[in-house]
Amino acid sequence: MKEDNLIDNWLKQELPPEEKEAMEKLIAFTEKLDAPHGKSQNEAWEQLTRKIEERAPDNEKIMQPSKPRRAWLWAAAAAIIALVIYVNFSAGNKIITVRAASGQLTTITLPDNSMVTLNAGTVMSYKEKNWERNRWVVLSGEAFFDITPGNEFKVIGDNYQVKVLGTSFNLYNRSKHLRVSVFTGTVEVSNNEDKVVLNSGEEALLHKNQLKTQAFDLTRTATWRSGSFYFDAQPLSQVVEELERQFNIKILSEQPLSERYYSGYFNTSNLNEALQLVFVPMGLKFSRNGDQVIVE
């Protein structure tokens, strides 16, 4: 699913549970938004109501909110209204989405001069308006954050949230694997089941929905920014996925790789050398055909 369709799919109730949860965390930030410039609250409500009552091509309503019967229902409806007004009516208040394509790194300077470097195959979204008050981003993939001190900064993703004030850390979030590694400062990592506070040199890993903390090697973490990747007993399937992202290739294997574990290193400067460093120690042969690699 494309991240820039999250809002539309959320309104259509087509999001999987984990993305629905992340989306509703976004809604919490928009509950107190004012009506758009040049419109009264009544005008905004009327325009929103017309959009709500629009029917999709299959003759099903996009959203059919019933009249609230309890206070919490009204609060939920208000949150939805605020979000839709925010997205559809507020000029200059849109969600900005940045993607790092396969084989590329992308560095973004946020409105407060915080720096974020996205690893290949990573997507990050944020709202620029009122940034100094509401500093938060949504991330899928891997990124290194160097946050300018100020109000609380949040990173939100599938089943996790990271809170910081001013610090630097690496965040890996792919295929339900979460790892947050703190280089400077203090970071709080939480999910539905657990919460941990990390200091410099500590990292949190998500295992069976529980957060575990451990020390990590600062010299071998987040080195992807210079093209170097280190692995310590990681499933070979994850290493293959990283090779595919970094070199924009497709690796096909004639045998399962998820039960093999790899400890080693590769660099993005040379594809053949990287393939040799990964597969030869595992006793595997490979051949190349254009942008495809066949592993035997």
Rank of each mutant, 00 (worst) to 15 (best):
Q41D: 15
N42Y: 05
N42C: 02
N42D: 14
E43L: 07
E46G: 07
E46D: 15
L48N: 08
T49E: 15
R50I: 10
K51V: 11
E53Y: 12
R55V: 11
P57W: 06
P57N: 12
D58W: 08
E60S: 12
E60A: 09
K61M: 11
K61L: 14
K61A: 10
K61Q: 12
I62V: 13
Q64P: 03
P65H: 04
P65I: 06
K67H: 09
P68Q: 11
P68K: 10
R70P: 08
W72A: 10
W72K: 11
L73R: 05
L73E: 15
L73D: 13
W74L: 15
W74K: 15
W74S: 07
A75T: 14
A75V: 12
A75G: 08
A76D: 14
A76G: 10
A78Y: 06
A79R: 01
A79D: 02
A79Y: 01
A79E: 04
A79W: 01
I80G: 13
I80F: 12
A82N: 08
V84P: 03
I85L: 11
I85W: 15
I85E: 15
Y86M: 00
Y86L: 03
F89Y: 13
S90K: 15
A91I: 12
N93V: 12
N93P: 00
N93Q: 06
K94E: 13
K94F: 01
I96P: 03
I96G: 04
T97I: 13
T97E: 08
T97F: 12
T97A: 12
R99T: 06
A101K: 08
S102Y: 13
G103W: 08
Q104A: 07
L105K: 15
I108D: 03
T109W: 11
L110Y: 01
P111G: 01
P111S: 00
S114D: 09
V116T: 02
T117Y: 06
T117N: 04
T117P: 09
L118F: 09
L118A: 08
L118H: 10
N119M: 14
A120M: 04
G121I: 01
G121C: 13
T122V: 06
T122K: 07
T122I: 11
S125M: 03
S125L: 04
Y126R: 11
K127A: 15
K129L: 05
N130C: 02
N134P: 04
V137F: 01
V137S: 04
S140G: 04
G141Y: 01
G141D: 00
E142I: 01
A143F: 01
F144M: 10
F144V: 05
D146W: 13
D146P: 01
T148W: 04
T148L: 12
P149M: 07
P149I: 04
G150K: 02
G150R: 00
F153K: 11
F153H: 09
V155Y: 05
V155S: 01
G157T: 13
G157M: 05
G157L: 08
N159P: 11
Y160Q: 09
Y160C: 09
V162D: 02
K163R: 14
K163S: 13
V164H: 02
T167A: 05
F169E: 10
L171N: 03
